[in-house]
Every structure is written in C-alpha cells, then in structure tokens.
C-alpha cells in the first residue's frame, strides 16, 4: 500500500512540475510578444507619417485601378520571367547533380571530406536568399536575364541536390549489388542501378522547384536582372500605382498558370 501511495505522490509531483513548466513557457512567450510589439510597433513606427486610419486608406486607394496602357509592354517581360524560371531550374538541376553525387553517403567518393563539402555547398545555397544571389551575379555578369538565371540556379541547387542525395541514400541496394556482381563499373551502377529508382522523385522535385522559381524570378528585376520585377520596379519608381497593381496582377496570373501546369504534370507522373 505504501509504495502505491508513494507512486501517486511522485506522479502528482511530476504533473505539478509539468504544469509549472508549461506556465513558464507560455509566460515567456507572451512577454516576448509584448516586447516585440513594444519595440516594433510603438517605438520604431513613424506614427506621424501614417496619421490616422484615413491616411492608410488614402494610400491604399492609390493602388486601386488598372493601367491599361502598360499591359502590352508587360507581355514580353512575363514571357521572359517564365523562361528565366525554366532555364534557372534546368541549370540548377545540372549543377546539383554532382553536388548530390558527392552528398549521398553511400556513393560519395572521398568519404567524410566530399560529403561534408557537398553538405556545406547545399547549406550555403539554401541559406543565402535569392536577392543576395542576384546581387552577386549582377556584379559578376552584368544586367539582364543571365544573372537572374544564374541566381535561380544557385538558389535551387541546395533543395534539389538535398532531395536527390536523400533519395540516392534511400535507394534499394539489391539492383546495385546485382550490377556490381555482374562486373559493372561505378558509372554503370549509377546509370542502371540508381537513376531509374530515383527518377520519379527527382522529376517531382524539379517540378516543385520550378513552381517556386517562377515566384522567385518575378522579383529578380528588383536588383537588376530582367523580367516582371524590372517592370514592377519601374512602375514603383514612377509612382504609377495603378501600373503597380497591373504588374502584380500579371505576376499573379503567371504564378497561377505555373501552379496549374505543375499540378497537372505531377498528376501525370503519379
């Protein structure tokens, strides 16, 4: 009996501790929210500039309406944006193949050295935002669509190669062993043993990344690579707010088209 009572006691104590932990967690959460609200919304905001709610509504009302005159100038940039996304994804795929090869534990040639190097490349590619990549490449190769393509490619490498290397690691070992037993070289193992297994995953990933890249390519123009971003930048700097709305609607339509296309492509693969 006594031991049972002890158990209940310790159990209730544990419960008590858990509740206290939870309370402390929520209190810190709320305090952090209040501090952030205080610093950002009370201290850092220029309330004088915003004025009243009417001021914000007035600012918003500038954006209402469409500028039909610029529409015919937007068709070429839209197509450019689309092509930039396609080429960027393709180049990203080419660049990520060697990285994925180095980054898969079971096929990497130099053990931890090449594996670590590939993981390092993937992390850098994913952590650096596409705007920064675009800035660097505008500095390297000049204005135009090329820096946008390169920036998208470098940004995509991290995600694509991570997925590919993970699926290489998860590939079924039996076909690989069979090819090795039949005397196949490393290339044969890759080409006949691994690639057919990972192909569906890879294609799905590429379509997903392409979908995201359309979104990204629409802003490449903000830092000097062409496309719809450049049109947006121009309209914004001319303070032609209805034009800005028009460009945003074009971006929206392009992305919707991309989403529908990728939906159908993925369905076809499955």
């Amino acid at each position: 009996m006594e031991s049972f009572a002890l158990d209940v006691n310790t159990y209730s104590q544990q419960n008590y501790k858990k509740i206290i932990k939870k309370i402390i967690f929520y209190i810190t959460l709320i305090v952090v929210i209040f501090l952030s609200v205080y610093f950002i919304i009370v201290l850092d905001t220029d309330w004088h500039r915003i004025g009243s709610g009417g001021g914000i509504l007035e600012q918003l009302s500038y954006f209402v309406g469409l500028d039909f005159t610029i529409m015919k100038h937007l068709i070429v940039p839209t197509f450019e944006t689309f092509l930039m996304a396609c080429l960027g994804t393709m180049l990203g795929l080419f660049l990520s193949l060697p990285v994925a090869w180095l980054g898969a534990r079971n096929v990497t040639p130099l053990g931890m050295v090449s594996f670590g190097f590939a993981r390092f490349l993937m992390t850098i590619s994913r952590s650096v935002h596409e705007i920064i990549w675009a800035l660097i490449f505008v500095g390297a190769v000049g204005l135009g669509a090329l820096p946008g393509i390169l920036a998208l490619a470098f940004r995509s490498v991290g995600f694509i190669s991570k997925i590919i290397s993970e699926s290489i690691e998860g590939a079924d070992k039996k076909p690989i062993e069979a090819i090795r037993a039949a005397g196949g070289s490393g290339f044969d193992i890759m080409y006949y043993g691994i690639i057919p297994q990972i192909l569906p995953t890879v294609i799905g990933t590429i379509i997903f990344e392409w979908d995201i890249n359309i979104r990204r390519s629409a802003i490449m123009g903000l830092v000097g690579a062409g496309g719809l971003g450049l049109a947006f930048f121009r309209q914004m700097h001319m303070s032609n707010y209805p034009g800005v709305t028009t460009v945003i609607i074009f971006i929206f339509l392009l992305i919707i088209i991309g989403e529908i296309l990728s939906h159908f492509l993925r369905k076809k693969i499955n």
């Binding site: 950002i40 850092d44 905001t45 500039r49 915003i50 914000i56 918003l60 707010y241």
Partner: peptide, 9 residues
Amino acid sequence: VTIVGFGML
C-alpha cells in the same frame, strides 16, 4: 513600405 512608411511595421 509605400503604405505605412519605412520601418519594422
């Protein structure tokens, strides 16, 4: 930024 001005808001 065009609507509420520069800053963290």
